[in-house]
Design a protein around this nucleic acid. Structure first.
Lengths: 150, 150
DNA sequence: GTTGAAGTGATAATCATTTTCATCTAGCTT
DNA sequence: AAGCTAGATGAAAATGATTATCACTTCAAC
């Protein structure tokens, strides 16, 4: 393993966003990018340990937060208040339908909401309007697994 | 103070929703209804203590959760992950534009979002889709106070 | 290579929320 | 009116995610 290319394989634009280049951060980012949907910091931490890239939980939190601050990750909260992160390849603003059971996330066409938000902000007299839109439910697979079980 | 009418002054329809009628619950509900915008459980708890209606923090949490479960309170999460509650007079589902500076909340016409959510849920194959829509910004008053200040 | 600022991570601290559990009470039943 | 008991209360402890500490390590500029 190349000792001095910790960020090998990562998109170049990600590197500049989070400060110094270290092996740990590279691993956290790779792990985050490898996940399909949203992941919690703890889940990512133990997943990395299982994959042979153990990193301190503190570092996972720090890197994830830095990445979210840089706008390269979406953050949602699940019902327990836990923050879930998701890698965002592009700079575009998206909304997702997240499965509460398996974490699978499906991008949804949020055009209508964006329009509504924009119009509402304009007519309200409020400045600097930010919006949070979260959809959560049971994905088809998890619905099947659950229904016959009872 | 009437010892045997703890729910005096509360809308009758609220009574049936939360089980047994106790002085403490009545006080929590009255306190919640007296608040303009959203309140956290802790804030409500200390506000009640200041007002001379001390109630255990546990009971505040329990009552607030029961009320939210019954659909009579809206719940949002602030940036710290704290849950904020707001009394909802009618049974209708509303969304609000909340001022980040003063907490003022203004109901917005959420019809378009509801439609969009419903359509998205229907076409996604997901079951049991819940949605969270939060708008936050600076209300006109706070905008004025802030702009000239710098 | 030296050096200093930045990063790491085990551990402890925080903080909102939930559990526990011994005690109390609303609101029937007799 | 007294008794009964499931439901309610609340102080204290537990939980669980996240953040702060701090001694130690490492990146990367010189």
């Amino acid at each position: 393993m190349p000792r001095n290319r910790p960020y090998a394989g990562l998109p170049a634009r990600e590197v500049a966003l989070i400060g110094r280049l270290t092996q740990q951060r590279a691993n956290v980012l790779k792990a985050l990018m490898a996940v399909e949907g949203f992941v919690g910091a703890q889940a990512l931490h133990s997943r990395m340990a299982d994959d042979g890239s153990p990193v301190g939980l503190t570092t996972v939190y720090r890197t994830l937060n830095a990445f979210a601050d840089a706008g390269r990750a979406d953050v949602v909260r699940d019902d327990n208040g836990e923050r879930l992160f998701r890698y965002r390849p592009g700079p575009d603003h998206r909304h997702y339908l997240v499965c509460t059971a398996c974490g699978l996330s499906m991008p949804v066409d949020s055009g209508p909401v964006e329009d509504w938000v924009e119009k509402t902000a304009r007519t309200s007299g409020f400045a600097n309007v930010r919006h949070t839109v979260e959809l959560a439910g049971l994905c088809p697979d998890c619905t099947q697994e659950q229904a016959p079980a009872r």
